[in-house]
Design a binder for these strands. Structure first.
Length: 680
DNA sequence: GATCCTCGAGTTCT
DNA sequence: CTCGAGGATC
């Protein structure tokens, strides 16, 4: 790519030629980068050409034209935004939330037009900001927000900095005047990168792409907007003069594309209510994988003549409707902020919420993680907050939407004493988590320890869930894991809501759990810092429990992924007489496993290979796949990195698959995995 | 000493 | 799934 060197001291004529050439390059590269996502030059090269053009324009004021790419950088701060009256009002759409409303819409349209079948242009409903761009003789002269639909704010200086928006339309046959309607938004990956930059610069991070886009557009200093990677998609037309618009909406969008306006590819033509429903389902399934946020899809009668004859009812068109997805963000009230005590004594603040329907489920609780998080988000009791349940399953309080009365009682204070056992709560220097110091004296910690012991990945005692553990601990029937193996039918049936049948089932499950493996047993003990993976490493390295119990810190540190902190934690655990006692009692009660010689280094067909599993495989459970891989010496990790050898992706694979594709990691489906497991 | 990677721990709802 | 923090690596 040779763009030539800048002339030393060019005459005006040479400068004009060079400037025109540079504008051509920059426009093309800008389009490749932002429009097609396929840059053909490095950023540094773009910047070099850009600065050269800037220098030329600085030297020759007459070369500074409004559609030059340099005019995107933005000018000095303004004092607020001027009002702007739209030539044609920017209307909002009526919403449909379910199938019946969608069928009603189609029926109304057909009856009103007196036809049997209607063709619809269908597209995405972006979660961004509606914008109107005015082009005169093909040159962008003005940009405004929707505002109340009739009058918006003039944000021309900021919109000029959006590189996907052409400052001059392509082509020779152009309307004298045209209002282009569309949406300004941020792509998800740009949003993530922007927030990373904000965090590094010590600036406030944005809650979501929409907020970030809105904040960026409302910058009074458009030089800031210029550094925000905003995008634009055109989807409609307002006033138009000096040219006939095409006959259908689909052609209108093609026409926009020919002008160089960015138009989203996710659009189609469908017929009838069934076609609408199919598009809705298809987009819904791919929603999380799209590079931007959407809150639904939009259906428009394709023929513009029919659109005109359908007209408007109050402030919304009768020819179009938005079909919304269930909200992934909702507003609700914090009724209370309580704390929970975890297995390790961690005191976690939890927001009790007024029930709210988000992302398909009713949410009543949301974790606030720790004290710093409560302060950072500045959540008080009775505040109105935004709750999200995005691609993620776990609800999260994103931000305060509106402060509540905020009286003294509404302020959250970390308790100084454990609400369960009254022991002192301590937050170590440099730690984010406050902990109850009660240890196993604390009933809450004993309950969590038992639940951990019984969980599927540990001793796998079916039927020993939180309700039962709660009762057993409260009645003081069970104090340690060893007590479980001495339970009898009578003491279980004495508990509330426990009939003979279910009591016997629990006893059977406890009996069955006696046959286990060393790694499950070590994990079940609940040693701090020793999770499933570390327990497996320890079990493999030492081979038998006595070797592990008597190991000193130096011996422990020889194990993979065990350093001083983990080693000290293990030594501390087995030094406690009551922990040794419980282990003895468990073995005496019949808990057993196969003990072997210490092993170093696994062997197997897939030894040393790292796998990551994501999504649902058609015929194999994730657990099963994991076990089979590990049996062959492979490692199954939780997240994808460049050290990952294979990613096994099933249905509804999420971010891990995207990341694998980003990093160029080999992706297998179930069949591919089977091939590796059982080479034929 | 910084950076990357992984693991542990806590969490929600059906 | 996300965060924080321990371990490994350069």
């Amino acid at each position: 790519m040779s763009a030539g060197a800048a002339p030393g001291a060019p005459g005006l004529e040479a400068a004009a030629i060079r400037a025109a050439e540079l504008r051509g390059f920059l426009q093309r590269y800008g389009h490749e980068y932002y429009g097609l996502d396929a840059p053909s030059v490095a950023d540094a090269e773009y910047d070099r050409l850009f600065r050269e053009l800037q220098a030329l324009e600085a030297a020759h004021a007459e070369l500074r034209v409004p559609d030059s790419p340099t005019q995107r950088v933005g000018g000095a701060p303004q004092n607020g935004f001027a009002e702007w009256k739209h030539r044609q009002p920017m209307l909002s759409l009526n919403n449909a939330f379910d199938q019946s409303e969608l069928e009603a819409f189609d029926k109304r349209v057909r009856e009103s037009l007196d036809v049997d079948m209607v063709e619809y242009a269908v597209e995405l409903k972006f979660d961004g900001l509606a914008m109107s761009l005015t082009y005169e003789e093909g040159v962008l002269v003005q940009a405004a927000t929707r505002g109340d639909g009739a009058t918006g704010e003039d944000v021309t200086a900021n919109v000029r900095t959006i590189r996907t928006i052409p400052l001059r339309l392509a082509g020779t046959s152009l309307p004298r005047l045209m209002e282009v309607r569309g949406e300004v938004l941020l792509f998800k990956h740009d949003f993530v990168a922007l927030n990373r930059r904000q965090a590094q610069a010590g600036e406030k991070e944005f809650v979501n792409p929409r907020n970030a886009a809105a904040g960026s557009l409302r910058q009074l200093d458009s030089r800031i907007t210029a550094h925000r990677p905003l995008r634009f998609f055109a989807y409609g037309v307002g006033a138009i003069e000096g040219m006939e618009s095409p006959a259908t909406h689909a052609h209108l969008l093609d026409w926009f594309a020919d002008f160089g306006l960015p138009v989203c590819d996710e659009r189609a033509l469908v017929s009838g209510a069934a076609g609408l429903a199919a598009f809705y389902a298809s987009v819904g399934a791919r929603r999380d994988a799209l590079p931007y946020d959407i809150d639904g899809v939009v259906y428009k009668v394709n023929r513009l003549a029919w659109q005109r004859s359908l007209g408007y009812v109050s402030r919304a068109p009768r020819f179009a409707i938005a079909h919304k997805f269930p909200a992934q963000e909702e507003q609700t009230q914090v009724e209370d902020i309580e704390v929970q005590v975890g297995r390790t004594g961690a005191i976690t603040p939890v927001a009790r919420l007024k029930p709210v329907f988000v992302g398909g489920v009713t949410v009543t609780n949301a974790t606030l993680h720790n004290e710093d998080e409560v302060r950072r988000k500045d959540v008080w009791r009775r505040d109105l907050v935004i709750v999200r349940r995005a691609g993620d399953v776990i609800p999260e309080v994103m931000m305060v939407a509106q402060a509540g009365p905020r009286e003294v009682v509404d302020y959250f204070r970390m308790p100084t004493h454990c609400p369960v056992c009254q022991s002192e709560v301590v937050r170590e220097e440099g730690e984010a988590i406050a902990r109850c110091t009660g240890g196993l004296y604390c009933a809450a910690q004993r309950k969590q320890a038992l639940l951990h012991f019984a969980q599927r990945r540990a001793m796998d005692i079916e039927g020993l869930g939180d309700k039962l553990v709660e009762q057993l601990v409260d009645a003081d029937v069970v104090r340690t894991a060893a007590n479980l193996y001495h339970l009898d039918l009578a003491s279980l049936v004495a508990l509330e809501r426990m009939a003979d049948k279910s009591a016997q089932n629990v006893l059977d499950a406890i009996g069955k759990s006696k046959a286990t493996s060393l790694s499950r047993f070590v994990f079940a003990l609940g040693i701090r810092q020793v999770g499933e993976a570390t327990a497996r490493d320890l079990a493999r390295h030492f081979g038998n429990l006595d070797a592990l119990i008597t190991a000193d810190e130096a011996q422990l540190a020889e194990v993979n992924d065990v350093g001083p902190v983990v080693a000290a934690s293990v030594v501390r655990f087995f030094r406690q007489p009551h922990n040794r006692e419980v282990v003895l009692q468990l073995r005496a009660a019949g808990v057993h496993w196969e003990e072997g010689a210490p092993q170093t280094g696994a062997t197997g067909a897939l030894a040393g290979k790292t796998f990551v599993l994501t999504g649902t495989l058609p015929n194999m459970s994730r657990e099963d796949a994991k076990a089979q891989l590990e049996a062959r010496g492979a490692k199954v990790a939780g997240s994808v990195s460049k050290k990952t050898d294979y990613v096994v992706a099933g249905a509804e694979a999420g971010s891990k698959l995207l990341r694998a594709q980003d990093l160029g990691v080999t992706v297998l489906d179930e069949a591919g995995l089977k091939n590796l497991l059982e080479p034929t």
